[in-house]
Write a protein that binds this DNA or RNA. Structure first.
Length: 220
DNA sequence: TTAGTTGGGTCCTCGAGAAA
DNA sequence: TTTCTCGAGGACCCAACTAA
């Protein structure tokens, strides 16, 4: 297969067969391909594989078989962007799988962290650009995406399921307990009845470059 | 004080329709 | 069958925030 397109030659003859890159189930639209880089072309009634090379969207080919198109997309990705890009694409599409986890009640966010318009549940964020709620979880120091949701509570339920799956029942209980304790014990310093006071200077030996010269004050 | 988590802005890639 | 175009989705990066 060799075609000249946008100054590029899509020649995959020297590229070994690569397994296709599946999309996460949450982002597959009706009638769309379940593989990355593959779209259904209604006019020709075929699957089209395309790849973006140096900012140019380049056609790899059109296929009767969706899997075959996906395999060639993976091969093109390997050839033009390297093994790293291929692995990255696979990783990016590896959303958290919660199929085997029963529904769990959502974890409320700590009171102090709630902003106007933000979710009241831990791990849930509203994305303005998609107008959807995104559920995320941090596992082994890395953020993993759970999915995008129309409903905030649904997102929070899946987030709780992810905590159970990746951190265990103990972590889930602890998260709920911490939230409850925090809400019960939280207080705000009320300075309304206190007159203005001069700041307290740190002792000279404790002053570091870039740090505040006042006690109790830290630059973030 | 540090390290982990959360929230938000920006920009790149994909998907889909239209045209060549 | 391929290319062009454009909007939407979503990933990346970093600042802000919090717990230990």
């Amino acid at each position: 297969k060799a075609r000249v397109q946008n100054q590029f030659i899509i020649d995959l003859s020297d590229v070994p067969k690569q397994p296709p890159i599946p999309k996460s189930s949450g982002v597959i639209k009706d009638g769309a391909s379940k593989y990355t880089g593959v779209t259904f072309h209604k006019q020709s009634n075929k699957w089209q594989a395309r790849i973006n090379i140096k900012g140019k969207q380049t056609s790899i080919g059109s296929y009767d078989n969706e899997e075959e198109a996906a395999v060639d997309y993976a091969r093109a990705l390997f050839k033009y962007k390297g093994q790293g890009a291929l692995e990255k694409a696979r990783k990016q599409n590896s959303f958290v799988d919660l199929a085997d986890v029963p529904p769990k009640s959502p974890i409320p966010k700590r009171a102090g962290r709630m902003k106007e318009g933000a979710s009241k549940y831990a791990g849930i964020y509203f994305r303005k650009e998609t107008k959807k709620w995104q559920a995320r979880i941090s596992v082994d120091g890395k953020v993993r995406r759970i999915g995008y949701y129309e409903d905030e509570v649904e997102a929070a339920v899946d987030c709780a399921r992810a905590v159970l799956k990746y951190k265990g029942q103990g972590a889930l209980d602890k998260a709920r307990e911490q939230r409850v304790q925090r809400v019960q014990s939280s207080f705000f310093v009320d300075l309304s009845g206190v007159s203005s006071q001069p700041p307290i200077l740190k002792s000279a030996c404790r002053n570091k470059e870039g740090a505040s010269k006042y006690a109790g004050i830290y630059f973030r």
